[in-house]
């Protein structure tokens, strides 16, 4: 069977009869998991920076566990493993009149706790990158710890945190495809199902790849706009604009002229 161009064009942006819902599920899982992951990551970072050894130790253990185990293994353990052992079984629930299927809950849960570990490290790095002098100035003005964290440390840490956080979301967009293994009919699974019916695996998966590329590229532009806005107080007014940032995110940093020749 030869490559069918017309099939690819027809289905490029409509990979299956269920494409629309599949795309919605992909975006929904990515956004919700990212939100939970960021909140969890904040807690993990503060715990890791705690002076209380037990708390920082537990946070370190958490990060080690969730970064060291493949994501797919985490998902299967959560959904299938726990149920098989009779420990916990995810059930469909209804939130705001929408049914949230069991498999999707498990997937979101798994993505969130994994993201919490990565974001925890990112936040920790951001907080540690804040100059001690800034904290001392806040203290000397009579600001309390919480106010200092909220008004001084976190906003400054964001400069360091936002670029890797944006990259994490790109990873998250792609990683949601793992939920297909649990039977969540997101982009990958709906495409796969349609491919099984039509036998046009190659065409459909090229289309699928293009769809993921569009998602991640659009996000990259949004990320660049956010970063440009956060950089507005830099001394140098000629810092790279959103377009240059987007180019760097998409293709990596430019090669210095001298290196190119070598």
């Amino acid at each position: 069977m030869s490559f069918d161009w017309s099939f690819l064009w027809t289905h490029m942006f409509d990979l299956s009869p269920h494409y629309g819902v599949g795309l919605q599920r992909t975006l929904f899982m990515a956004v919700i998991s990212m939100i939970f992951g960021v909140m969890l990551g904040m807690l993990v970072a503060l715990a890791r920076l705690s002076k209380i050894r037990v708390i920082s130790g537990l946070a370190a253990l958490y990060v080690w566990l969730l970064r060291g185990v493949p994501e797919l293994v985490i998902l299967i353990l959560l959904y299938t493993g726990l149920a098989a052992a009779g420990i916990f079984r995810f059930n469909d629930i209804t939130v705001f009149g929408m049914v949230l299927p069991a498999a999707m809950q498990a997937a979101i849960f798994g993505f969130s706790i994994r993201e919490g570990a990565y974001m925890g490290e990112i936040f920790r790095g951001g907080i540690m990158a804040v100059d001690r002098g800034q904290v001392e100035a806040a203290k000397a003005l009579g600001m309390k710890r919480i106010a200092t964290l909220r008004r001084i440390i976190l906003p400054q840490a964001m400069r360091v945190v936002v670029p890797p956080m944006g990259n994490q979301f790109t990873i998250m967009l792609k990683a949601t495809s793992l939920a297909s293994v649990l039977g969540v009919p997101e982009l990958l699974l709906t495409t796969q199902t349609f491919a099984a019916e039509t036998f046009r695996v190659f065409e459909l998966f090229i289309g699928l790849a293009v769809n993921y590329l569009i998602l991640t590229t659009v996000w990259t532009f949004i990320q660049s706009l956010i970063e440009a806005r956060l950089a507005r107080h830099e001394a140098d007014t000629t810092t790279e604009g959103p377009l240059a940032r987007a180019r760097r995110h998409l293709f990596g940093a430019a090669t210095p002229a001298g290196r190119r020749a070598a």
Binding site: D131, G133, Q134, E136, A137, A138, K139, A140, L141, G142, M143, A147, R151, I152, P155, Q156, R159, H233
Partner: peptide
């Protein structure tokens, strides 16, 4: 501490805030 002003060698202005925001931050918060 609020009644004791301190000026540092390295200024330590909050660099994510404008000068005016720097000056009003603690009076509002504290």
């Amino acid at each position: 501490r609020a009644g004791i002003g301190m000026v540092f060698q390295n200024f330590n202005l909050f660099w994510h805030m404008t000068l005016l925001q720097n000056v009003i931050e603690a009076p509002i918060q504290v």
